[in-house]
């Protein structure tokens, strides 16, 4: 059915006449893909469908829940903004320059993806805790890391930035250097070239990187709970409700977190959908 014009003269077009059904390949692959899809859909679907509608609405009326959801959204977006401001130049350097120790820097950028999340929290704690020198110095100028929004954002940048930097770096690498050179031969300086040639060709990667960074940040729990139990983000609240009141109460919050994430990401994807240049 996928190849209507092959039906009549299969023997001519099929290079391996012994394989009667070329569709078999695709059937096998689809069959092998299904369990994974099921693994994602089943638990999430169950959780999304289990709570009573009235409970969901009731949860939305709770100040604590609203605040936690808002805090999660805000800190994740703030972390993404920070990652964009500092990660874009880094990604450009990594894509365009060769220098001694580049592999080490690449490894460092990837490191937050690999280490266990509580370890990240502990690492930040040991640097900015109330007994650490840096923590005390920041404390004196009025910046508090532990148990503050600043601290949460810092943790989220830590875990989310690698996703942004790697995605945007791949984007920069796909822009031919020749085009940047051509722009400069036409009189544009490096800054103009970046904004008029490079940026228009990578902004989709930047949106994609931002989506991934936000996704990573909004879902962070392990590192956040060590740096800041309070003020509470949605994942921490969900965990607290689960341990204190049980499954039912945590599900109502989880539902809204997933719903918000879904809407956010679908919106961003639609926004950055590849426009076909005719």
């Amino acid at each position: 059915m996928a190849y209507p014009d092959q039906a009549g003269d299969k023997a001519i077009l099929n290079p391996f006449p012994k394989v009667k059904r070329p569709d078999l390949f695709w059937h096998c692959f689809v069959l092998l893909s299904l369990p994974l899809i099921f693994l994602i859909i089943a638990p999430l679907g169950k959780m999304m469908l289990m709570p009573e509608f009235s409970d969901l609405m009731a949860a939305l009326k709770e100040r604590v829940v609203l605040e936690a959801l808002g805090r999660s959204l805000f800190t994740a977006l703030a972390a993404t903004a920070v990652a964009m401001v500092f990660g874009t130049p880094l990604a450009y350097i990594m894509a365009r320059k060769n220098f001694f120790g580049k592999k080490v820097v690449e490894g460092l950028i990837d490191l937050p993806i690999m280490i266990p999340h509580p370890v990240i929290g502990i690492a930040i704690l040991s640097l900015f805790g109330r007994n650490a020198i840096l923590g005390r110095m920041l404390d004196q100028v009025g910046i508090e890391i532990m148990g503050s929004l600043t601290g949460i954002v810092m943790v989220l940048v830590f875990v989310g930035a690698p996703f942004y930097v790697n995605t945007v770096k791949a984007g920069f690498e796909s822009v031919p250097i020749r085009l940047e050179k051509a722009s400069r031969t036409l009189g544009a300086g490096m800054t103009s070239t970046f904004f008029r040639v490079t940026f228009p060709m990578v902004w989709r990667n930047m949106v994609l990187g931002a989506v991934m960074c936000t996704a990573r940040a909004i879902s962070e729990f392990g590192a956040v709970i060590i740096v800041a139990y309070h003020p509470m983000t949605a994942p921490v609240l969900i965990y607290e409700r689960f341990t204190a009141y049980g499954l039912k109460y945590s599900q109502c919050v989880a539902f809204w977190l997933i719903a918000i994430s879904l809407v956010l990401f679908v919106m961003m994807r639609l926004f950055s959908r590849q426009r076909r240049i005719q």
Binding site: L179, K181, A182, V197, P200, M201
Partner: peptide, 11 residues
């Protein structure tokens, strides 16, 4: 300069 592959801006 005119490059061999023209290097026109695709966007």
């Amino acid at each position: 300069i005119v490059y061999q592959d023209y290097a026109l801006f695709p966007h």
